[in-house]
């Protein structure tokens, strides 16, 4: 987080900024500011880790529920259940692919 927006502030702000910069330089704290991407990539790696497995399972679960409900409604047990569980599995893989896929090329919408 860089606080460069306060350049045109009062003298108090300016002196604070210069003192802060001095203190940061003395402690060697300005190195992380040079690579601001370090923390976000770490975070998104964690995000992917927590998302992938559950996306796969939850789509199958939704397929299971929908298939079971439609079967009870239409008395077609067990065909729709089978169909929707398979579709749910595919949807889960589509979800996982959307998480781990490289950024889509600009011509195409996700």
């Amino acid at each position: 987080m860089d606080e460069d927006k306060t350049g045109t502030g009062t003298t108090e702000t300016n002196s604070f900024d210069s003192r802060l910069a001095e203190a940061r330089a003395k402690r060697g704290l300005d190195r992380p500011a040079d690579q601001p991407n370090a923390v976000p990539t770490d975070m998104s790696a964690f995000t992917v880790f927590f998302r992938v497995g559950i996306e796969l399972v939850s789509a199958v679960l939704v397929g299971l529920l929908i298939g079971y409900g439609l079967d009870r409604l239409l008395h077609t047990r067990p065909f729709l259940l089978i169909l929707f569980v398979v579709l749910g599995g595919i949807a889960g893989m589509v979800n996982v692919w959307r998480i781990v896929a490289p950024a889509p090329n600009p011509g195409r919408k996700s």
Binding site: F50, R51, I54, E55, V57, S58, A59, L61, V62, G63, I66, F84, L87, G88, I90, A91, G92, V94, N95
Partner: peptide, 16 residues
């Protein structure tokens, strides 16, 4: 498939 994928969002969000 797209509808299932859309409906799976609240489930994955809550279960996680």
């Amino acid at each position: 498939i797209e509808i299932l994928s859309y409906l799976s969002r609240p489930i994955s969000l809550s279960v996680r």
